[in-house]
Write a protein that binds this DNA or RNA. Structure first.
Lengths: 236, 236
DNA sequence: AAGTGGTCTAGACCACGGC
DNA sequence: CCGTGGTCTAGACCACTTC
């Protein structure tokens, strides 16, 4: 349970919940500032604070003289999200198989990407990822062992790595720098992904940072281009 | 008619100006809420409002118990820019060779991407792009002829397509939706790009929109992954 | 202890939109 | 006209950081 001691956060999350559950949907008017202030027994400024935050987050649109309305659902571009989250958002099932797990890896590229000293221990694991029961990606992750002790292989089998980092290790994920290119499948990759040898694969290398800027994860993923295309929007 | 300056906006823009002129730079403390309130003769809440807005815009960082500071300059990621612009920013020379130019193309994918009727005329051209005198990409562009009449082959040889669209046709470029994957080089691509047949290539398909949302350009690019990687930053 | 940002009150008046 | 959001006041107390 999360402590809800702040009045404006209480209002904020209550409104958010009603929108998320579909009780209020796109275009619906939500209670006015004065009404919220009255029902929650707070001052106008406090009710405003809640609505202002929701407007900044794009959840809500306010029109002077008219009211406050649920904003149209946003399409999130360029968002850092895990495969599990992406697939789930589209209503697709995923699962993974951990095919390698090593407590003391030693790879220069990972050490450099994570900004570590060469003596530090690194956790390395490799997962074969499935969507609709077909393998579509191989991902290798490197994490500093000191930051994530007791991370066990079994935990990875069960669920989302992102969820694990956030809940079990209190990681505040912030951003990822990514480099995307194309490579030919090695015989091993070809076998695991069920494609021809030398078939083109999309390769994404990423360093994920937490809120304070510290790198927490270095990942290399190889994706079957027929099953996973990267979609982005760029602005001028 | 002079729009009356609201107190919090006045504070906001004054602070912004001092940052833009370099009077206050990255890391500097800016006056506290109470100090701003006093010097502008407004209440605390009003000074707070100004600082809160600046924080939302990422101009300023606030730290409880410490103060408010100028935020580090933001790096613009995921910006829509042409190859010419990207290369130029890194101090690299590029040139292109137009290897196809067709006034009345008829390709379903392009017509659909541009949201046109099937009878409309489409301009199609293909360019082989060089960086440091080595070919690294083949790009095919489709544009609605009605929007860009008199676009001549010679103009493309000379300079940047983006510059042409902006200056000669008053196009206000706004955003691009892109789809990125990997494909094997066709024999023709392999020959032009000087790679082995079936070598992996990065493929980027994009629809560029102008400010009013109208699609103005559909492009397919094939990139040698050893000479051109895509770099992005994604935020949580 | 002093100073900072964070939350909150109980009002006020203004600007706007719809009826 | 009434109800809406937008701005603003003059205080209050709390939580946090630094000295």
């Amino acid at each position: 349970m999360t402590p809800r001691r702040l009045a404006y956060q209480k209002i904020r999350s209550d409104v958010l919940k009603r929108i998320e559950t579909g009780e209020w949907t796109y275009g619906d008017a939500i209670p006015s500032e004065r009404e919220l202030a009255r029902t929650y027994g707070v001052s106008l400024m406090t009710a405003r604070h809640a609505l202002y935050d929701l407007e900044c987050d794009g959840v809500v649109q306010r029109r002077r003289g008219v009211g406050t309305f649920v904003a149209p659902p946003r399409i999130e571009f360029n968002r850092l999200s895990s495969i599990t989250e992406q697939m789930h958002a589209r209503g697709l099932q995923t699962h993974s198989k951990v095919i390698a797990f090593e407590l003391n890896a030693n790879e220069e590229s990972a050490i450099a990407a994570l900004g570590l000293e060469s003596e530090e221990k690194i956790l390395r694991f490799e997962r074969l990822r499935y969507g609709a029961d077909q393998p579509f990606a191989i991902e290798t992750c490197y994490l500093p062992l000191a930051r994530f002790p007791r991370l066990r292989r079994e935990a990875l089998d069960r669920g989302s790595l992102f969820a694990l980092l956030v809940t079990d290790y209190k990681t505040r994920l912030s951003y990822a720098d990514e480099e995307i290119d194309a490579v030919a499948a090695t015989p091993r990759h070809a076998r695991l992904l069920n494609v021809a040898a030398n078939a083109p694969l999309l390769r994404i290398r990423q360093v994920i940072h937490q809120a304070d800027g510290t790198p927490v994860l270095y990942g290399i993923g190889f994706y079957r281009p027929d099953r996973h295309a990267l979609v982005t929007r760029r602005f001028r």
